[in-house]
Write a protein that binds this DNA or RNA. Structure first.
Ligand code: SF4
Ligand code: SF4
Lengths: 130, 130
DNA sequence: TCAATAAAAGACTTATTGTATCTATAATAT
DNA sequence: ATATTATAGATACAATAAGTCTTTTATTGA
């Protein structure tokens, strides 16, 4: 059980976008080069972030990507879920009634993780850097 | 990102074993039937639990599986890691120095989840049931 | 001792998902 | 108009998950 590489790329790209001007977009070309990944592949990942509403794209010459929301609104969880989806970590096939204990424990555990990811914003990192 | 079905089977099997007598083992046949999974496949999963030291197997007539440790020592995390391995949820390819912040956040999040799974024992569930 | 029983191990198949490329299309600045 | 850049879709390949089948090894009961 691991996060996919796509999530890795997404996180790093978002970090790069936060450092960048909120006005002038960066092209996928450049973003891909930094991470050593193919532009077309990264493009797909970025499209998902666009659909999740956290970045916006500009077509045509001098186009590219830039943040859409306020930086501080973007949490780790947002990014991860945009890529990984929001299916539950543990799901059983035969649901044995409402208060299944196995499920309860697993879901609680997942929520612990998610709550940490939700409370950490990308800007927290940038601030620490400076 | 999801836990595999194997983990699901392992959890349910362990729960069944806890309910059972600690002396007389249950055969994989029976355990598989309960969960609607093929005995050979479940057998593989159980072998991993044996190697992790939390159950023991008895060959031959009237053989099967039973708990090896004291019930109360077995945590959810033990079972999950026996099946899923203990690789980190997030790993980056190019390690940029010791105090990488992305990694730090992700690892902390994972630890939050694991700590919950480590502090919950399977017996907690049985007790609640009664 | 011997046959029945049951787990362990390994080779193998199939399905699903992750990772990536290529091509064609739509939008935009100059 | 043309060069530039994102978007969408088809496709290819690899890795992992999920499961089957067969053989081997260990144990018990008759
Ligand atoms: S016991 Fe809980 S986790 Fe297991 S199958 Fe039933 S509802 Fe699902
Ligand atoms: S910034 Fe951190 S997570 Fe990203 S590649 Fe460097 S070490 Fe890894």
């Amino acid at each position: 059980m691991k996060f996919t590489k796509a999530t890795n790329y997404a996180l790093h790209t978002m970090l790069a976008l936060i450092d960048n001007s909120p006005v002038k977009p960066i092209g996928v070309q450049q973003l891909a080069e930094i991470q050593g990944v193919s532009p077309t592949y990264l493009s797909k990942i970025l499209t998902r972030l666009v659909k999740a509403g956290m970045i916006e794209s500009v077509s045509g010459v001098n186009g590219g990507y830039r943040l859409s929301r306020k930086k501080d609104d973007i949490t780790f969880l947002d990014i991860i879920q945009a890529i990984e989806g929001n299916a539950s970590l543990f799901e059983c096939n035969f649901v044995h009634g409402e208060e299944c204990l196995i499920q309860a424990v697993m879901k609680e555990a997942e929520e612990k993780m998610e709550s940490h990811l939700k409370n950490t914003k990308l800007t927290d990192m940038v601030q620490k850097k400076t």
